[in-house]
Every structure is written in structure tokens, then in C-alpha cells.
Design a protein around this nucleic acid. Sequence first.
DNA 1: ATTCAAATCATCCTTTCGGGTGAAGGCTTA
DNA 2: TAAGCCTTCACCCGAAAGGATGATTTGAAT
Lengths: 140, 140
Amino acid sequence: MKKSVFLYGISLALLVYVLKLIEYRYYVRDLSLGFYLTLIALLFGALGAWFGGQLVIKRIHSISSAFNANATSLKLTGISKREYDVLTLISKGDTNQQIADKLFLSLNTVKTHSSSLYVKLGAKRRTQAVQKAKELKLIP
Amino acid sequence: MKKSVFLYGISLALLVYVLKLIEYRYYVRDLSLGFYLTLIALLFGALGAWFGGQLVIKRIHSISSAFNANATSLKLTGISKREYDVLTLISKGDTNQQIADKLFLSLNTVKTHSSSLYVKLGAKRRTQAVQKAKELKLIP
DNA sequence: ATTCAAATCATCCTTTCGGGTGAAGGCTTA
DNA sequence: TAAGCCTTCACCCGAAAGGATGATTTGAAT
């Protein structure tokens, strides 16, 4: 981001320098002022468009890949590690028994975790829990 | 999109006109050519940046909202309209009974639809169905 | 007109979920 | 050390889901 701004600044400085040259040649050659103005407008318009596009793209990227398992939401909901493990597998469509097998837990433990998950997510069913977890960016 | 380009064109034309005025005043007032050049550069740079940003945003939107219920995948899976209705509500965390109420169906019918959904999606549970449907872009 | 898929509903039966509750061991922190 | 949370597991019970199968109606295609 800062790098982009820096690059943009450099480009701008360079162009201003070029403009200086043009300014000098203005007295030498016989091109209208309007020509240069249009040229500059086009140049900076294009440059600005590119820059603006890059800016937005970067922002979008930083938002969409802001899926760092979202520690903020995790703390807000108070979901623990183990509960999160269960949540992840629930979202993949595993049954409680399958989750128990994968996490080396008893079925009852998985049920306990999922139950507290529902409470913390304000859900009544696993499908709801998955939906809410996605809203909170807890899972992809 | 076309509208944006048009607006941009209009803005550009307007500014060029303004530049004309400035050009005339150049002979009247005592401001350096560099000043105007920089002004133009900044103006068009900013305008271009805004325009570029808008362009990218629109493109992103059209991509992300290119969620036209993905007819391709629907045909491939052979999911019917009614099944799709059920799928949608399933993905929202509704129970079969709730779905039945919303769609004015009997619980059994909902079960039938969901069962054939699972077959067509290669899922064994509703949570899996939801996950696969998302992969196929059938639901958001 | 016959055929076929979709949509609707049913019954029976098994599995899975989910709620409620209790309890034991471990770790952290006041 | 006591309080508190996390993790683990258990039992009970009702609700929801899911599988198998069959039946009727309707609309579209052949």
C-alpha cells in the first residue's frame, strides 16, 4: 500500500519533470499548448485509472484474504480451540461420530462441544451454526 | 459500465473545455505554464484514479454477483426447481418442518426432495449438501 | 395417446442430533 | 488455594433427519 503510494509519487515526479522538458521545447517547437494539456490529461488520467484500480484490487484482496481464522470474531463469540475444531468439521458435513473419530474424542464430547457452539453462535442446529460462522468469517 | 465510460468521456470533454479557457487566460494572467500543467495532472490523476477504482469495483461486483443461480451446474446435477427451493432453505439452517411450512408442503415431500438432492449432490447429509452446493456455486 | 419426469404425499424404520444434567481432571489467574 | 474455564466423558430422552418404497397427479415430450 505504502509502496504503491510511493511509486505513484515517483511516477508523478517523473512526469512533472518530463513536463518541464516539454515546457522548454514549447518555445522551440511549434506545438499548441492544448496539445500538451491534452497529452498530460490523458497520461495522468490513464495513470490515475491504473492506480485507482490497483488500490481497489489491493483492498479487495486484503478483505477477502482477511480470513486469518478471524481471531476477533473468535474472541467475541468466546469459542475455544476445541470447539473451533468441531465447528470446522461440522461445516464440512461430518457427523458427530465422524468428528469424534477424527479428533479422537468420544461422541458425547463432540456433542458437548457442538452444544456450546450453538449457544455461542446463537444457533439451534448445526446448519445454522455453519451459516452464522460463515457470516462471522470464522470459516471460509 | 457503458454509462461509466460515457460519464468519463463527458468529464474529460468538459475538462478539456476548461483547459481551453485556462489557455486563454494564460495570456492574460501571470501564472506559469507549469502551474497549469500540474493542476491538470492532478485533476486528471484524481479523476482517473476514481474512475479506475469504480471500474474495478464494478467488475468485482459483476463477478461476485455473477451468482445467477448457476444454470450450468443446475443442469449438470439435474436438480429441479422445487429441489432447489428446498436446497436454499436447507442452506439457511431451516429444519425440514420449517421448509415444509414455508413452501406449503408436507414434511414427507420435503424429505423426498432433500433425499434426491443428496443423491444428485453426492452428499449423505444436509450439511454436506450445503457444502457441495456452495462449491458448485448453486448457493451463495 | 402413451410415456416420462416432476411434484406431491404416505408409512415404516433406523440413525443422528440436540437438550439437560452431572462429573472429573487440568490449567490459569486472582 | 480457590475460582473459573477448558476439555473430556457419561446417560437419558425427545426431536429431527435420512433411507426405502410405493402411490397419485400433472404437465411436457414423443
